[in-house]
Write a protein that binds this DNA or RNA. Structure first.
Lengths: 135, 135
DNA sequence: GTAGCTGCAAACTCTTTGCAACTCT
DNA sequence: AGAGTTGCAAAGAGTTTGCAGCTAC
């Protein structure tokens, strides 16, 4: 039982075959898969799984904060396991997603919110760019 | 003819009655209206205008960069006239949108993109918070 | 006159949900 | 046994689009 499965069990979720599949797909993903992609990957392992289950499971995992739902400038959601905090740079030419961290940025956004009289609860920071020096 | 109308005319758009209405609604808006809201406000001025026209017009304006389309953590789009660059803090309790600017932040995001080997083309930065010291 | 614009209704995409059958614990 | 979970198909929400008629230029 991997780490994610453990956390789900702790949260009182039944560990059904479908859930294990989805968790495995998420756990081994090195990208930021869409629901469709999670579905396709899970389907390779058990062709009877349905989209509805994938949607329901991802929503549960999001509520439990075990995954993060991203809505980049696309018309669908992508997911990733909630591990170390980081931000994303999206390559506009390939759709690739690059992760980065920046301590200065973290401080700055807290500071800005506080100066405006707010407690920062959540945020969204995404950069969209094109590779320099492309041939 | 206001500033927005002038820019549209310059872009070769026909200045129809419906477009003038939508431009006027946007120009006088002090908030960040959704398509639905733009539609409702335009409808007060001419009850025969249709949603399809509002959608089409906002899409055109977005392509011409005369307005900015925002997709905050909601399931619909909001628009504002593209004027001075700024970011947004969304009050999670009221849905109010507060605008802010921060020079340090601007530099920082450029720098981060460049360090990753990218030209920054676009970005998204939104803060979500709750008012401090609420009674 | 005609290219572009409009309203209407239908279509589309992504996501959610009601229901009856099934399954983990 | 029973609450929770599933697959299916239908429904929802927001948005886009084909078409026939209309309008700014």
């Amino acid at each position: 039982m991997n780490n994610l499965e453990q956390k789900c069990a702790d949260a009182g979720l039944k560990m059904t075959g479908q859930r294990k599949l989805i968790l495995q797909v998420l756990d081994t993903a090195e990208d930021h898969p869409s629901v469709e992609t999670v579905y396709e990957r899970a389907k390779e392992l058990d062709s009877s799984i349905s989209m509805a289950t994938v949607y329901r499971t991802l929503n549960m995992l999001d509520e439990l904060n075990l995954v993060i739902r991203h809505e980049f400038k696309e018309n669908f959601s992508r997911y990733e396991v909630n591990e170390a905090h980081h931000h994303h740079l999206i390559d506009l030419e390939t759709g690739d997603v690059i992760e980065f961290q920046n301590a200065e940025l973290e401080k700055l956004k807290e500071k800005i919110a506080n100066e405006l009289g707010f407690d920062l609860v959540d945020h969204r920071l995404e950069l969209y760019g094109k590779k320099i020096n492309k041939k």
